[in-house]
Amino acid sequence: MKIIGVRFREVGKICYYDPDDIDIDVNDRVIAETDRGVECGRVILAPRELSNKYDNPIKKIIRKADLEDVVRYEENMKKEKEAFDICKAKIIELDLPMKLILAEYTFDNAKLLFYFTAECRVDFRELVKILASIFRVRIELRQVGVRDETKMVGGVGSCGRALCCHSYLSDFVPVSIKMAKEQSLSLNPAKISGVCGRLMCCLKNEAETYEYLNKKMPREGASVCTPLGEVGVIVSTSVLRQTVKVLVNKSEDAKEIEEYSLSEIRVQA
């Protein structure tokens, strides 16, 4: 059985479909059924054989998008901007404690979704009635968290590059303070937090490498024997370079700090 990977938003999740013997290649537009309704997506993964058994049924794509479908998709994008402005104005008018993030039409225009954040539960029933009377489609409001908000809106991180979640991460990765500790980063929240206020997703990028290298490093304060047979104490380590600085007793009155690679020293028990 062959499958293809389809993404319906720029950095959304990759959904898998049966191409149903249709000639499809990467970057082609296709029309498919999703949990939200009929959508127009872009093929990210070319057709390939499904090697492992997949318990859940795999839907077939409806068709390959034609020029008319593409035009309709682009028109929906324009309509979403208009819907966003109207909904935002109504939120202000009703004085609702919520922040509108994104408006999204399904491809078949059967549903209009609005994503928002709020610090508490919001009674938006009146807002839904007003929006339904304006747009004459099914209205759905979805509350999202701060990480989802950042992923949808995008921005620039402290590194000066586009946010990972908005540029290439399909799903959020679990990040912990332990990762920052192992990478010897400052535990100042302002230094290791992203635009969303949560720990930066990029801490995960080198977590496995640091975890592996840290296991090979001796602890600071450990006694070691240098290549010259001198005994010293480790005062600092460089995880990436795999080197240590050792305080060596040259004489009763003289001490020097020298740098060695791990292969040059022997840790004393």
Rank of each mutant, 00 (worst) to 15 (best):
I3K: 14
I3S: 12
I3Y: 12
G12A: 05
G12K: 02
I24N: 00
D25T: 14
D25E: 11
T34A: 05
E39M: 13
N56Q: 15
K59P: 04
K60T: 05
D66G: 12
E68M: 10
E68W: 11
E75L: 14
K79E: 14
K79H: 14
K88N: 15
K88F: 14
E93A: 12
M98L: 07
A103R: 02
F107N: 05
D108S: 03
N109C: 13
L113C: 07
T117P: 06
D123V: 06
F124K: 00
K129G: 01
R138G: 03
L141H: 04
R147Y: 03
K151Q: 01
C159E: 05
F172C: 02
F172Q: 02
M179Q: 03
A180Y: 03
A190K: 14
I192V: 15
M200A: 04
E206V: 01
A207H: 04
T209R: 02
Y210T: 02
N214W: 00
K216T: 07
M217I: 02
S223D: 11
S223N: 12
L228T: 13
L228Y: 13
V239I: 06
R241C: 02
T243A: 01
V244R: 03
V248Q: 01
V248K: 00
K250D: 11
E252G: 12
D253M: 10
I257P: 08
I257L: 12
E258Q: 11
Y260D: 03
R266I: 14
R266H: 10
